[in-house]
């Protein structure tokens, strides 16, 4: 009887150890982000902050065209466009390429900057162009 108990306990220990050591099988991308099944790929909101981390956009809401993949935003008169922080709100599980790691120079209005949205399943990529205009 005691031997049976001993063997059962040993078996349980082994099973527990095996379960605890098994590797999760969820796929992640090169950034360590979860790859999901979502194929949606769009920008839902856009914001631009100045060096004081306050918005530099005017009262006009940015116009985001998810078909043409464009963003049109108007900044306040006198905005220092060489030192701004763009903020993109994306659909669930999507990510942005290139990543925004600090201040960005948006001062070259003739050559708008582009950012690519990558869907949650990492299969769909859409490149958005950000057009900035200055309040007059």
């Amino acid at each position: 009887m005691r031997r049976y108990l001993y063997l059962t306990a040993l078996l349980l220990c082994c099973a527990f150890a095996w379960i605890s050591c098994s590797k999760d099988d969820f796929p992640v991308d090169e950034d360590g982000l979860l790859i999901t099944t979502r194929a949606e790929c769009y920008v839902s909101d856009f914001q631009l902050l100045g060096s004081d981390f306050q918005t530099v956009l005017t009262a006009k809401k940015p116009v985001i065209d998810t078909t043409a993949c464009t963003i049109h935003a108007e900044v306040q008169y006198g905005t220092d466009l060489k030192n701004v922080y763009p903020q993109f709100s994306l659909v669930t599980d999507a990510k942005l390429d290139p990543k925004i790691t600090g201040k960005v120079d948006f001062s070259d209005l003739a050559n708008p900057r582009s950012y690519t949205v990558v869907s949650g399943n990492r299969q769909v990529r859409k490149t958005y162009t950000v057009h900035i205009s200055i309040q007059q």
Binding site: S51, D52, Q76, Y77, G78, D80, K82, N83, K103, D105
Partner: peptide, 14 residues
């Protein structure tokens, strides 16, 4: 080094 040479629309406590 890349800052502009003006700052407009400054508010109290800024």
């Amino acid at each position: 080094a890349n800052a502009p040479d003006y700052a407009i629309n400054l508010k109290e406590e800024a």
